[in-house]
Write a protein that binds this DNA or RNA. Sequence first.
DNA 1: TGACATAGTATCCAACAGGAAACTACTTTC
DNA 2: GAAAGTAGTTTCCTGTTGGATACTATGTCA
Lengths: 119, 119
Amino acid sequence: MRKNAEINATPVCQVKMQAISDAMSLLSGKWKFHILGTLIEGSTLGFMDLLREVNGIGSKMLSKELQDLEMNKLISRTVMNTKPITVSYSITEYGKTLSPLIDEMAKWGIDYRKSVYGK
Amino acid sequence: MRKNAEINATPVCQVKMQAISDAMSLLSGKWKFHILGTLIEGSTLGFMDLLREVNGIGSKMLSKELQDLEMNKLISRTVMNTKPITVSYSITEYGKTLSPLIDEMAKWGIDYRKSVYGK
DNA sequence: TGACATAGTATCCAACAGGAAACTACTTTC
DNA sequence: GAAAGTAGTTTCCTGTTGGATACTATGTCA
């Protein structure tokens, strides 16, 4: 009988598990993928644009999620010198590295739908 | 000025967003990736094995997460005719289709760590 | 017979996630 | 001067997540 972890005790697994935890903590919540996806697609958008594009989100959540994403350098926030003042959000180069992951997620989700609701 | 969503109103975006929501809802929570990753790596494990392998999880959460995953056909549960009775959990063929997604997530997380804590 | 293994369930609780609505503050337009 | 646009913040509330602890039920071994 086995008393201690064996599989996940290997260094390579430890590193992978840690990595997944890291990624999940940055991308957790109901809205982050939607916001990132929208910014990847739409390049540069203001706060109100995002409020309209991200279906169902409220201003409180949008504000909070944008702060999170900016803190993690996935998006950038620039106050524009316009009248009235506008703020433009866009994806960073680093944020763009999430594209393969987002695509993979979407791909799997699409296949999943097919398998559940018939092909 | 734009009053309505434009980017995400396109059918292709709607489908992608829906797909991501689907995938996220199946894989949400603190433990699902860990459990799936462990079962992909370890092939077949009992309840107590998983309790030991998945670092930090408690029996209540493990039980609940395993039920969720089984309901979604990502893992299978088999009661073995042994003494004492044991139950073996393993990844299904369908669950294995998550491998690319899990790998992509791990890959991104590893790169993220490098970029934060120096290369 | 008591310790220990199997696989969970039950109970209680704290923390967090997320939503609705109202509100701030500033500027431009009608 | 009122309305409407910009970008948020504040408050209050509910529902979910997740953890600790204890417990059930069964069987084996020494």
